[in-house]
Each structure stands twice: as C-alpha cells, then as structure tokens.
Design a protein around this nucleic acid. Structure first.
Length: 272
DNA sequence: CTAAAATCCTGGTGGC
DNA sequence: TGCCACCAGGATTTTA
C-alpha cells in the first residue's frame, strides 16, 4: 500500500545513503521481480553510479550513469532499505544491490508484487502516468479538465494511474471524505465546485501523509504515523468524525471503499 | 467505449 | 492447537 506519500518518504530517506554511490553487484532472487529480465538487471547494473533519485507517481526513479534508468514499484508490500553488507540477507529480499561503500540496497517484498525495471527509455515504464497531483504547476483548472468526457465512478477513477498518478485506496478514500463526495458518484455528475473541493482535498491529504511520513499498515508496510489520522479508511461502523453517522464499506472496482453515507452525499454537499 | 474479472502472491485471520 | 479456506492490495491483461 505504499502510495504517493509513502514512496515520497522512502525517496527522501534514500537520497543521502545512495546519491553518488556506485553499484558493485546486483542480485535478483525472485524471477518475476525484474524487468526486462533477471539476467539483464544483474548484468547491466554493476559499475553504474546513482546520479539522481526521485519519484514519479508511485515509482522510484534512479538515474544511472551510462544512460540507464531504474524504476522500482513497491506495489503492495515492497520496501527498500540500506544496510551493511555484513548483515544477513532477509528471507523476504527479492533483490539487492551492493554499493561501493560496503552497504547494500535491499528490496524486500513479502508478496512479490513489486517490480524493478531497468531501461534506457523512461517512457516505456512511466509514459502512461497521469499528472503529478502535487506538482507546482498542476492547477485546479488542470484538475477539472481531466474530468472532461470521463465516465465511471469517482473513486476508481482517482485510483487510475493514467488519470492521475499516486493515489491508492487509502488516499483516494480520504480525499473523497474531505471533499464530502460520495466515492460512488459517476464522475461526470460532479460540479466545478465539487471538483475544486476535491482538488484541494487531494493535495491536502497527500501533503499531510508526507508530513507524517506515510502510513503503517498490517505489518505489511513500514511507514510513519498517518494511519492514526485516517477519517474513514478501515473505519467501518465507527462514527463519522464530521457527523457521527456510522462509516459504510462498499466494494468499488473490487476494492474496499470507506465513506460516510450521510455527509458524503450529493444531498449534503448541495448547500456547501 | 466501460467495466468487471482474472492474474500475480503471501501473511494474516476467522471458522471450526 | 492446528488446519485450511479465504482475502487484501496495485496494476496489467483478458473477457464481456
């Protein structure tokens, strides 16, 4: 469940230990973790220097010497840590890269959904992603324009990475709560005022998540403290923090969706 | 076009 | 206590 704030937190934490380091050896321990292939990654990574590290959507992006880029997607349960090479490799480690200072970058991923992509064409990995919701130049008008000629329900659309990048099940639900929007609403029924509220809610909840270094969940993902600030996610039956109505849970596009059936309704927002 | 289902996976949980 | 069926979760691919 690393979403944008969790990935951003990891990227920030890795800057100091990784920037300028050279990879001396690469090992992939699970066949499906590496793209285009285990052999390619193990052969082409060594001797490259990490020149830049950033985030795009939920991907980590490593710019390497020699014109290659490495993208890592943590999916459900992935995590990255820098440890001394003297430490034993953890059983859930799916890949690791030794560094020229005696440390090791370890990619742990119990559920094996995560992927690492080595490429010289970034567009092949991140070319279809929608806009960055926190970009300085991403305006409320840009956001409203995304909804032109889009159908489908609101929350699944927000989680569609080609629509907008970085939102997952948690932050999409929390943003709908703050914007007082029913996550089941057909996207083409939202007014400009609804969308403006949603734009600000998305940016606020993502920034809040980053400030708290993301969320920790289920022993599956090691994050910060944002899980203590959820308003609706995982709160089925608990009183809505705004109006006291029990929080409801429905399935939308196969995902648990939490919301307040009273104050996140078209009727309740008509008068805002 | 949209949308739902299948796929990839394992650790944790609930039922018995 | 142990066994097992079940499920969550993101993104892609397949099917309807």
């Amino acid at each position: 469940m690393p979403e944008l704030p969790e990935v951003e937190t990891i990227v920030r934490g890795l800057q100091t230990p990784l920037l300028g380091r050279t990879i001396t050896a690469a090992k992939v321990l699970w066949h499906n973790t590496a793209r285009p292939s285990v052999v390619e990654v193990e052969a082409k990574l060594p001797q490259r220097r990490i020149e830049a590290l950033s985030r795009r959507g939920k991907y980590l992006k490593f710019v390497l010497s020699g014109g290659k880029m490495l993208f890592i997607h943590l999916k459900m349960s992935g995590d990255l840590r820098v440890l001394p090479q003297s430490q034993a490799v953890h059983p859930h480690t799916r890949a690791f890269f030794n560094l020229d200072n005696g440390n090791r970058l370890e990619f742990k991923d119990p559920r094996k959904f995560g992927r690492i992509h080595l490429t010289d064409n970034p567009q092949s990995v991140i070319g279809t992603l929608g806009p960055e919701p926190l970009a300085d130049d991403f305006s409320v008008d840009d956001f409203i324009a995304l909804f032109e000629r889009r159908s489908g329900r609101l929350k699944p659309l927000l989680m569609n990475q080609t629509f907008i990048a970085g939102l997952g099940n948690i932050y999409a639900a929390e943003a709908c709560f703050w914007a007082r929007l029913d996550p089941r609403r057909p996207a083409n029924t939202l007014s400009a005022a609804d969308l403006a509220r949603l734009y600000h809610a998305i940016r606020r909840v993502l920034r809040h998540g980053i400030m708290l270094k993301g969320a920790t969940l289920d022993n599956v993902y090691r994050g910060g403290e944002f899980q203590n600030h959820f308003q609706v996610y995982g709160k089925t039956g608990k009183p809505c923090p705004r109006c006291g109505t029990p929080i409801a849970r429905v399935m939308l596009a196969g995902r648990s969706t939490f919301f307040c059936p009273a104050c996140q309704s078209a009727a309740s927002t008509a008068s805002i």
